[in-house]
């Protein structure tokens, strides 16, 4: 697990952020097993996600879940992460709220199988961590963006010693994985420029 070392205060109070307690709702419970259950929870999460404004973040809170099996983790969270990464929810993002405990291993295994990752926090506002798989060469980029809070492509490129195009490619990959936000700064000197920020 990789820590991203950024602490921000009460991010969920911001507009467009919502917490979904997985134990609540019709499909919810403390013992989360089988793909069927996972599918129903994913559908419930998808509905909430679609209602969020563009750029919104859904905090999926599994802290009250006592146990989940691999099938549930893959169906509920692995496939959700895959759809976020596939652009199905536009600029909306998902953050996992869970402590570092054994239950997380199933989520980790599913995301690694899929070559995907999610941002995880112990609680909303706590330091973001990565669960799953982020390509080695992107980890430093991700960490630098989270350390900075918000950073332009030019500043990021300077920090990491990369040219702007290479920097843009790397950050774009992280945007597509659903791990960061990207904004377009039209007023930037030299015209259009991207800036990036963490989602949690």
């Amino acid at each position: 697990m990789i820590s991203l070392n950024t602490v921000r205060i009460d991010p969920v109070a911001e507009e467009g952020r919502e917490i979904f307690d997985v134990t609540s709702g019709e499909a919810g419970g403390r013992l989360m097993v089988t793909r069927g259950t996972g599918r129903r929870v994913r559908e419930a999460l998808g509905e909430v996600l679609e209602r969020l404004p563009s750029g919104g973040v859904l905090y999926v809170d599994t802290r009250r879940v006592e146990l989940m099996d691999y099938s549930f983790a893959d169906e509920a969270l692995g496939i959700l992460a895959s759809r976020v990464a596939g652009g199905e929810y536009g600029e909306r993002r998902v953050v996992l709220v869970e402590e570092d405990r054994e239950l997380l291993e199933n989520v980790e295994a599913s995301l690694r199988q899929r070559g995907l990752a999610m941002i995880r926090v112990d609680e909303p506002g706590a330091a973001p961590e990565i669960v799953g798989e982020v390509p080695e060469h992107l980890v430093e980029t991700l960490r630098t963006i989270y350390d900075a809070g918000s950073i332009t492509n030019a500043d990021l490129a300077a920090k990491l010693g990369l040219n702007h195009t290479a920097m843009n490619n790397r950050a774009t990959r992280l945007v597509k994985l659903g791990l960061i936000h990207r904004h377009k700064n039209t007023a930037a000197p030299g015209g259009r420029q991207y800036s990036y920020e963490g989602i949690a």
């Binding site: 146990l67 099996d69 099938s71």
Partner: peptide
């Protein structure tokens, strides 16, 4: 953690 191990094992092989 013991309960989780037993239950996750059972559910997975049942499935």
């Amino acid at each position: 953690r013991e309960r989780a191990a037993i239950c996750a094992t059972l559910s997975e092989i049942c499935a």
